[in-house]
Structure formats: structure tokens, C-alpha cells
Amino acid sequence: MKCRRAKQLVFDFLDGTLAESDRVNLEKHLNECSTCETFTSQMARSLDLVHRAPLEAPSENFNWNVRLQLARERNAFHDAIAAQKEVFKSWNMHFALSAVATFALILASGYLLWTSGIILKPDVPAEVTYQRPATTIQNLASVPNETSTDESTTRYRGDLPDMQWPVSSGESGFLGRPGYRGAINEEVPPLSTIIMGPDSLVPFIMKSYYMQFRVRSLQQQVEQLQSYLRECESGTSSVKP
């Protein structure tokens, strides 16, 4: 047996895992080789020394310290959760705000593109103008009663006489409606024109408000006239025409 192999077996012997046949061979070698014999005795003694190492006792408040640290960890965990919630809350707020801002930006840019004629070029001849028929007493008077059975001529109370969208000139009109003659490479008008110009939203809203008011007042007039006519027919009117 070689010394190298013998030293390997010594470790197995110290571990208590040496096979019986190997043990006999090892003993034989140790009897013959003084180096290996010394090695074995030294190894056994040094390992015996380390096995006899006195055990260190933990401090008395070991368990208490563990519990304290656990409590600290738990608090830190709860703090972290709370902080996370706060962040989430503010993040939600930021998200909502940025969503609103983005929406407004998209709306504004879309509107700018639309009015400047970059994305839509309406194919409407500019010459088309609409004439508003004259609203006369005769026209109104020809409106029959609800009781009329003639379908083709039936007009109901509250119906307006034929009216067209008021178009003042070829230059006006909102969102490319009649009157617009823009080109794709048309110069973008200044911001003041975009906001307050004839094509912009502000006059449009004002116009639509005005129209509503106008329509309502006309309706009222028509109603008054109709009732007056009915009274005249039945001869109950106190007012002479």
C-alpha cells in the first residue's frame, strides 16, 4: 500500500467509514511505515483536540433579541407597505392628471390640424350659398292644423318653415363646411385667429347659442300666430286683425 492511499484510508478510519478489509491493510501499512503512523497519531490527536472545543453559550437575551429583531422587521415591513400605498396613491393622482392633460393635448392638436386643413380638405364648392326663404305671415298662415290628413302637406305645430344654415359669406363656416377654400399647404393662421377667428370653436359655440335662442323665439312667434289665426277663424278673438 502506498502512503498516499494509506492517508486517504486514515481519514475514512477517523470518520468511521473504513471497510473491514481496508482496515486490515491499513494496520499492516502503519506497522511498517513510521511516517504514516506519526501522521495518523497526530491527526487523531488534533481532531480529538477540536472535538473537545468547549461550546460557547449564547447570551441570556438571545431569544429576546431575536424577537426584538422580528418585531422591528415586522414594523419595517408595515412601514414599507404604507409607503408603497402612499406612492401608489400619488401615482394614481399623477396618472389621472397626465391622462387629462394628454387627452386635452390630443384634442387641441387634432383641432389645430383640422382647422388648418392638413388632415381634411373638404370637397365643397365655395360658391354654394344658401338663401333663406322669406318668413312671412303668409307662409306661416299656410301651415295647416294637426288634424290635417294630407300626409304630403302635413306640418305639425312647432315645425319650422324651411330654413337653411345661415352662411354669411364664402369665407366663413366651421370645420370645413361651406365656404372653406383651404389648401393643404395653406399657412396656419395665428393662434388668436384659431381661438377667436371665424373658423374657430368660440364663435361657433356663440353662433349655436344664438341660433338656439333664435329658433326658440321663432317657435314662440309661430305658436302665437297660429293661436291668433285659430281665434280669428272661430271669431273669438278680441283683437281685430
Binding site: 497526530q42 491527526m43 490527536r45 488534533s46 477540536v50
Partner: peptide, 17 residues
């Protein structure tokens, strides 16, 4: 590794032994 460490340990404590 354990066997190498044992060897180191033996050499270290040898003078005392």
C-alpha cells in the same frame, strides 16, 4: 476540502501537541 482542512489543522496545532 475537509481532509485538506484536517491536514492544515494538524500542521497548525502540531507544535503544541
Amino acid at each position: 476540502r475537509i481532509n485538506r482542512a484536517r491536514n492544515y489543522f494538524r500542521k497548525i496545532v502540531e507544535p503544541l501537541l
